[in-house]
Every structure is written in C-alpha cells, then in structure tokens.
Design a protein around this nucleic acid. Sequence first.
DNA 1: TGACAGCCAGAACGATCGTTCTGTAGGGTG
DNA 2: CACCCTACAGAACGATCGTTCTGGCTGTCA
Lengths: 208, 208
Amino acid sequence: MSAGHRPQSLSTQKPQRDREFLERLQDYYAEHKVIPSYSVLAGLWGVSAKSWVCACVKRFEEAGFVDWTPDKQLKPGKRFFERRIADAPVQAGQPHAAAADSHDLVSSLDEMVVRHPSRTELIRVKGDSMIDAGIHEGDFLVIERQHHANPGEVVVAIVDNEFTVKYLGKEREELVLKPANKAYPVIRPRGRLEIYGVMAGLVRRVVR
Amino acid sequence: MSAGHRPQSLSTQKPQRDREFLERLQDYYAEHKVIPSYSVLAGLWGVSAKSWVCACVKRFEEAGFVDWTPDKQLKPGKRFFERRIADAPVQAGQPHAAAADSHDLVSSLDEMVVRHPSRTELIRVKGDSMIDAGIHEGDFLVIERQHHANPGEVVVAIVDNEFTVKYLGKEREELVLKPANKAYPVIRPRGRLEIYGVMAGLVRRVVR
DNA sequence: TGACAGCCAGAACGATCGTTCTGTAGGGTG
DNA sequence: CACCCTACAGAACGATCGTTCTGGCTGTCA
C-alpha cells in the first residue's frame, strides 16, 4: 500500500458488488485454502471478463485485503482474515451498522491462540475435573509442549499412563495437581511429576 | 486418494528429503498463505529442476498432504495443516513416541470452528452470567450471524442496546433469555426479541 | 566390476496465466 | 436529446505455468 492512502472501508463509495465479491473469494479460500486464478474468480463471481477481475483485485489490494508474494503471486493480505470482535454497546435504531464501525479486528483464530506451531498440540478434554475453570468435557485444550511449568498454570500431566488436566500447585516444596472441582481430590504424585505441556488456550465447537 | 492405498507416513521409505521439503512448503504457506508455483518451490528447496518438484508433489498428493481444486490448482490437502489431538492413553517408557502414533489429527482451528467465514464474528464475553455453561469473562465467542435460533441454543441477543449472551428458552410460546448462573434472572423481553447470532464455538486464550 | 536404482538437471511442449486495450449497454444528469 | 460515467464483455499479448522426456551422476549391492 502506497503512502498517503488510508485503508478503504470497501463498504462505502466502492463499486457496489465489491463487498460481495470479496466475501465469495473469502469463502472460496476457506474451502480450498488457495487463491484461485482470475478466470476461476470470474466464474465464481458470475462475470465473464478477466479484465474486470483484474480491476477488482487492484481495488482489493489498495484496501489491504490481498497482497503479493515476493514472486508476484496473489495472496491474502493483512485484512483478508480479519474477523470482527464485537464488544461495543450498540446504538439504538441501527445496531448493526453502528456496531460495524466500533469493532476490533483479529486475523485468524490460529494466530490468536497458537504462538509456536511446532510445539503446539490439542488435547480433547475428558471428564469434568476442571469444570470450575470452564474446561468442559469435549473441549479442545491448546497446549504447548514443555516439561516445566509454574504453579498456578493449567498443565497436562501424565499420571498412570494417561493424560490429566489440572492446575499445577505447590505444597511444602512439592508439586501437586489440583482439580477445579470439589468432587475430586488433589493428586500428590510420588516421585517425579511428569508434565507434558501447559495450557495455552481452549477451543470449543458447538455441534449444530 | 485412490483405493488400495494406505496413507504413507512420509517419514519412512520415502525419498529422504521429502520431509524437509514438506516442512519448507508448510513454512512458506504459513508465511504467505498460498502454495507457490513449481519454479518458486524449486528455489525454496534448493533444487533447479521443476521436474523434480513435480515428482515430489505427486508423492505429497499420494500421502494426502496436498490436493487439487476442481480447477486443477494445487492446494493444501487434508493432512497439510494437521495438528495432533492427544487423547489416547500413553504407554509407559516412551510416552511421547507412543502417543504420536495414536493421535487423531485436526487441520486448523479456524476450520474446526468457523463454517461460514463471511457470517462469522467474534464477541468478547463480559460478565459471568453464563459461567455454568463454561463461558467465562474474556472468552471469545464464535458466533454465526442470523436472526433466528432454536430454544436450547446459546444466542447473542441485543437487549438495551447491548450484546448479551444467554441460552434461548421458551416459556408459554414466548422466547426468553436464560442465564447459566443462578445469581441472574431470566430475561423476558417485551416485544420482539432481537437475535444477533448463534454461538458456534468458543475460543479462550491464556495469557502467559 | 558391472548392473541398477535413486536423485536430480535441463530442455521442450502446449496450456493457462495476468495484463492491457478497445468496445458497449444502461442509467443518471443537464 | 447529447453527454458522461459506471460496470462489465471480449480479444489479444507475452510471460509463466505444469508436464514429459532424455540423460548424467552417485551410490549400493552382488
């Protein structure tokens, strides 16, 4: 993006169907994880002129939605994955439109939650021993693999050859595993406590 | 993948550098979000023959790491983004290695949780009115925007010009909003209940 | 020592790419 | 009515694409 440009909103003062075009491109990308060629895009958009696609892409580029690799290949831009974070109070009358402007933005959920991809894994939570920490059965725990952790962190430890998710606690210089559910006892391992990883996030999918 | 093939592990009995090649491709993709052309790939891999790239890609395809769009464009395959889901009991002695084989796999967190990108938003949760549903303050709620919902679903509604997250309930043919916290009352809206979206997932990041 | 397989280089091919240029149909404005 | 502007269509261009084929080099094993 050249200097002097402020990012365009794309919803105003732009060719009317650009927003729709962009959404179709985003949905295509969500399905295939690739930017299609201009001719495919034309089909996707229901137009039959690559020249028009070319022009649209240039507008998207100015707005920051697409970009180019060092090898001149079209790729998603910084704003391509942005998803609105709605947390502002809405104004009466036109709640949606008003909300749209006061939104924060985040790129991808992956980026939100995984910092070191190569060390990151998911664990599917079993049981309800951590339910008071908002960790439910079936949730996916995002963990970073490491063998040490600090008291107070949620850790994945290996106890009796099974993964177990607990708070790491400290009692008289001894590390213990504390559940977040009064129905469960504190685990005081004899010998060394084997830590598999530390909780870095949580993902829950709602089946619909 | 053609019938009769079992997925290859790629770490065994394949050309030795294939694993390294794949990782470089994955890193490139992580940076640019696009699959590069064969000539760019050749440069990336330090080889100078597109024919070799072509052969490697075919091996990756057999192993399920890359795939093709309906328009014959190369794209990431099912296993391209795979991240291990650890939920199997581990064997004594070599827990990590043993775990690695019994893992399930998932592609990206985005894909897990967002089905229709253009209709999906995030909302940052305020308050503890849904705490018994495992929805805590500061969590990000993944919502699909729509104006109707079924009783029992978690919805984001607009009440007094603010977003509120509640269970959608039904009392005597009237829609109501039920919190998941006994300290809060059921909300019985007068007039029409304005629904902003439906919960499709939840993402929590742990600050460390 | 010879045979052979694995790994890669390089050239050549038609197909498809992205860009540019010109053309046109329709709506708004005076 | 003449005029302009927007929103596309369509053809043409060189560049680059992915594929195939041939061929050389380097081990390995009998």
